[in-house]
Simulated assay, not measured.
Amino acid sequence: MTLIFAHRGYSANFPENTMLAFTEGAKAGAEGLELDVQMTKDGEVVVIHDEKVDRTTDGKGFVKDFSASDIRNLDAGVLHKSLGRKERIPFLKEVFEWLSGNSLICNVELKTGVFRYKGIEEKVIGLIRQYGLQDRIILSSFNHYSIVHAVSIAPEIETAPILAEGLYMPWIYASSIKAGGFHPHYRAAHEEIIRQSLQHNIAVRPYTVNKESEMKRLIHAGCTAIITDQPKKAAELREAIYKRP
């Protein structure tokens, strides 16, 4: 069965990459979450997509220039004024503590494409091991050097390179860097690529799948998971598809 991963949590309806979005994603029927990590100037791993805080908070500047305590003072819910409450940027350890009380899978995207964040792989892997989540975490990144480095220090944790464009025989590439899967843009996730990858025991989790037609196509194709801003819609569509005789 194709799993549903809530992209940055239930980000269509709630502030992305916040604990509220993650808990609501779980309530909506997702079996997994996708989140992004950056690092503060004092080495705290924090959950936020952009290198700057400008788009999603009431602050300005690069994540790397904030201390952990200062970044906690920002409101990560400014794009959702109707909530009437402040949402904080989570520390990754907070998310992992919450995950330790449920059975969700978590895709942690290492945002090392713009700033290298020296040591972030070690810090994230240390937290994964601390909370005993080795079997429920997937480490992904557009920076495949981060993926290879993660494999070298934690071969027990699944990794998945993110592919923005189509790649010839991606299952071979994934195997060559000892990744358990890959995460293609949904337009590059053709049925034959999905079929061949699964036959070679390589997981395929396309992103960011919000169109109903694409959800249906990928669920019918049997991909490992779809990463979506709309977990409720995806879960309902999947249920309808699997219930058909």
Rank of each mutant, 00 (worst) to 15 (best):
I138Q: 03
L163C: 09
E158R: 13
H185L: 10
I128G: 08
H185I: 09
I157M: 10
E158Y: 05
D135R: 13
L139V: 08
Y117W: 06
I128N: 02
S146I: 10
Y145M: 15
L198C: 00
K123L: 06
E165I: 04
A154C: 11
G132N: 15
I162N: 05
V151S: 00
E122T: 04
R195T: 10
A189R: 07
Y117I: 05
P155R: 12
H185A: 08
A154K: 03
A150W: 13
S146V: 11
Q196Y: 06
S141G: 03
V124E: 13
R195E: 04
R129V: 10
A179P: 05
I153K: 08
A188D: 07
V124D: 06
S152R: 12
P155Q: 03
I172C: 02
S176M: 13
A160H: 13
P155C: 02
E191S: 01
S197Q: 06
S152Y: 02
G180Y: 05
A154I: 01
F182M: 01
S146R: 10
A179G: 02
Q134L: 10
L133T: 01
T159Y: 07
K118R: 14
I138A: 09
E121L: 09
K118I: 14
E158K: 14
I193M: 12
P184C: 04
P161N: 13
T159E: 06
A188P: 02
Q134W: 07
E158C: 12
K118W: 13
S152M: 12
Y145Q: 15
P170N: 01
A150M: 15
K118T: 15
V151G: 00
A164S: 11
Y186A: 00
D135K: 15
M169P: 00
G181H: 08
I162M: 15
P155T: 07
F142Q: 08
W171I: 03
